[in-house]
Design a protein around this nucleic acid. Structure first.
Lengths: 191, 191
DNA sequence: AGAAAAATTTACCCTATGGTAAGAAAGCTA
DNA sequence: TAGCTTTCTTACCATAGGGTAAATTTTTCT
């Protein structure tokens, strides 16, 4: 819980009322590896702030193949924002890749923070702007880089994540098969 | 100019002061086809609201190939938000695909609207949330769909855009070559 | 309209990545 | 630690899409 409060405080003066509000609507949880927090096809009400461990969100396509949208480690948020903001059922699944600690919020309740404490508006706007930038970059990288280049970039961007993930998770993030990633890794070692 | 004001008014009560502010910091422009609004490698200061015509933003990779990030038609915003929000030089180029009308803003000045008229905060937050959702969907589509499927979806999402764009623009958005798109189009006609 | 430029199509072959399957390695559980 | 399960690697062949180039069509310019 401290982690979230501290993170906010680096960007914002947090009144004791606002801090109290955050406490009142959140629940800290420790989750085992493999736990599913959001199930594809179900209603999505929750959003999670990660304080330890590693989670990922992914969709399953018509052939049963998984495609990873996001890995979330300490200090990241994770949920199915497609579902939350379009009021549809989950297209994503969110699972714990390792034992993890999260702070759970009801997304609709959390949203009220902006009305009650307007100083959160611009904080949240900045978060969203940064997120948009990272998504723009990811799309451009997917368009212009080869699979080995994307893998190298991934390792730069998530330097410690291989402790937490299996290779097939990374492959499904990069848009290649597990076998291709395995070949790419072999080539890297040769050099 | 009316278009922008009207668009905002569908989401927000717009005070006459705020309307006045928007007028005071904006400039309406008619641009010929081929005009470049943002040049890769230069400082980005401006952002554009499109009221007529069609523009696109794209990057050029190390082999000289173009990759389209976004097409913008009536009522869309376009700029290089990577550059604006990271204070770096433009990685993108923004060009007019047809003669177009835009409302030009200095991005930093426009940003002040949130401090001066706080009601814009939540409006902008919602815009960003919707944009994030569309980017999440695009990434998932790129991961799970074949090129012909992505093309079909593109035609659904931008039903009238083929009037404005060349096929190689669309190919560079879908992440395929012009030649592949040509083959896909031939196959579609056969069915 | 006619010439020039640009875009599209088509054909050829090539390469990166996919699919399947089997064996090896690693990780988990009792 | 043994046995079971999952993941990773390797090998094979298959295929989607890429690269080059030339012919054709469309668009632009004067």
């Amino acid at each position: 819980m401290e982690d979230l409060i501290n993170k906010i405080k680096t960007h914002l003066h947090l009144s004791s009322e606002a801090e109290e509000f955050i406490y009142s609507i959140s629940k800290e949880k420790t989750l085992p590896k493999g736990e599913i927090l959001i199930h594809q096809g179900q209603v999505v009400k929750k959003t999670f702030f990660v304080t330890a461990g590693c989670l990922r969100s992914y969709c399953i396509d018509k052939n049963g193949k998984e495609h990873t949208l996001l890995f979330a480690i300490k200090d990241w948020w994770i949920s199915d924002y497609i579902a939350i903001h379009t009021d549809e059922l989950a297209t994503l699944t969110v699972e714990c890749l390792t034992e993890s600690k999260v702070i759970e919020f009801n997304a609709k309740e959390l949203d009220k923070i902006h009305a009650r404490f307007p100083e959160f508006e611009s904080y949240q706007r900045h978060n969203l702007e940064r997120h948009v930038v990272s998504l723009h970059k990811r799309i451009l990288n997917q368009l212009q880089l080869t699979a080995p280049e994307r893998y190298d970039l991934f390792l730069e961007q998530y330097p410690d994540i291989e402790q937490h993930t299996r290779n097939f998770h990374i492959a499904s993030y990069l848009g290649i098969t597990q076998q291709s990633l395995s070949r790419i890794r072999v080539e890297k070692v040769k050099k």
